[in-house]
Design a protein around this nucleic acid. Sequence first.
DNA 1: ATCGAAGTTTGACGACGATCGTACTTCTGT
DNA 2: ACAGAAGTACGATCGTCGTCAAACTTCGAT
Lengths: 109, 109
Amino acid sequence: MGRMGRTPPHPDVSQFDLQQVLEALVDPVRRSIVTQLDAAGEDLACGTFDIAVSKSTATHHFKVLREAGLIRQYYVGTSRLNALRRAEMDEAFPGLLDALTRPRVPVAP
Amino acid sequence: MGRMGRTPPHPDVSQFDLQQVLEALVDPVRRSIVTQLDAAGEDLACGTFDIAVSKSTATHHFKVLREAGLIRQYYVGTSRLNALRRAEMDEAFPGLLDALTRPRVPVAP
DNA sequence: ATCGAAGTTTGACGACGATCGTACTTCTGT
DNA sequence: ACAGAAGTACGATCGTCGTCAAACTTCGAT
């Protein structure tokens, strides 16, 4: 029972919660995942990310991101692909992802 | 020694750190402080904020906000006034405060 | 049918942070 | 000079969260 392949629940845009999104994005590892996903411009498998944590910890982070609505997850074979829900996040919180994924602009000296 | 009136250290814009700013803003109480400050459009004393925590806890929150660069604090008599460092934050992280202080836009049904 | 690759699940653990009460400091009025 | 108002400093507590290891599941390839 409980096939691993079943698609996990994803929140609807109308249910996105700023508090939850911020709690997801405050963690450096998770923010790095979002940034890498944004830079890649394509869906990525969990294992392909450059993060320095164990597999179980990675699973945890992806779950937090998914439940906050930041990513969508789906299986392809044994791999779990992750898609950034850019448009939906922008609809719910305009400018937020832009502000967080934009590389730091050096301040004039 | 250590007069209370001495101005506490404030970070320079060039030292603003995204991680630190996010850690400051992820707390609902602190985000509420920033929002109230933004809405007021003027500097406010610590005691005038609508927050449901003790005085010592409030002091802690203001300190976290100040060290992250979100507010500037200065004394006037026995009151400590708080100013939102809007322009500087916008320079360091364009769009961030906008995204966080903007009231949630209802999603089309 | 079996093996390995890719994730998940389930505790356990440790650290950090929000909170409070109490005591203390500094200034303003009276 | 004194009392009160406005914060600050200091511990102490308590919950939550990030982390891992170990055992398990599922799928694909051989």
